[in-house]
Simulated assay, not measured.
Amino acid sequence: MACGGAWDVDPTRLPVPTWRWYGDADTMVPASHGRWLAERIPQSTLVVRAGEGHLGVVFGHWDEILSGCGAAPRRS
C-alpha cells in the first residue's frame, strides 16, 4: 500500500483503532512496513511475530487476531 502511489486516505487522521500483524521473516510485506504505518496511525497496535512469514502470522495466530478484532470498541 505505501509504495503504490498516492492514497486517498490520510493514515494520521484515522479515527479508529487499528491492528497491524506482521512476521519478522516476511519477505513479501516486511515488518518495517508495519512499523512505518504504526508510526503514522494514531491508535495503531503493531504485532510482530518472530520467525513468521507472510501467511504464517495469519494462519498461525488466527484466534488471537480475531480476539483483537472483537476487543475493538463498537461505535453506534
Rank of each mutant, 00 (worst) to 15 (best):
M1W: 05
A2N: 09
C3S: 14
G4E: 11
G4L: 13
G5W: 03
G5P: 10
G5Y: 04
A6D: 13
W7F: 07
D8H: 11
D8I: 10
V9L: 13
D10Y: 08
D10C: 10
P11K: 04
R13N: 10
L14T: 13
P15C: 04
V16N: 01
V16E: 06
P17E: 12
P17V: 05
T18E: 06
T18I: 07
T18K: 08
T18D: 03
W19V: 06
R20G: 12
W21K: 01
W21C: 00
G23H: 05
D24I: 10
A25I: 03
A25S: 13
D26C: 02
T27K: 13
T27F: 07
T27Q: 09
M28L: 11
V29G: 05
V29P: 00
A31Q: 01
S32V: 13
G34A: 04
G34T: 02
G34R: 00
W36E: 10
L37G: 06
A38I: 03
E39R: 12
E39N: 14
R40H: 14
R40I: 14
R40G: 14
R40Y: 10
P42G: 08
P42T: 13
S44I: 05
T45P: 01
T45Y: 01
L46T: 03
L46R: 04
L46A: 02
L46I: 11
L46G: 06
V48Y: 03
A50I: 02
G51F: 09
G51N: 03
G51I: 02
E52G: 02
G53F: 04
G53I: 04
G53V: 04
G53D: 15
H54F: 03
H54I: 03
L55T: 15
G56R: 04
V57L: 04
V57Q: 02
V58M: 13
V58G: 00
F59T: 12
G60R: 07
G60Q: 09
W62F: 14
W62V: 15
D63T: 14
E64K: 00
I65P: 01
I65W: 00
I65S: 00
S67R: 15
S67W: 07
G68W: 08
G68C: 12
G70E: 14
G70P: 06
A72I: 11
A72W: 07
A72V: 11
A72Y: 08
P73H: 07
P73Q: 08
R74S: 15
R75W: 07
S76Y: 02
S76P: 15
S76R: 12
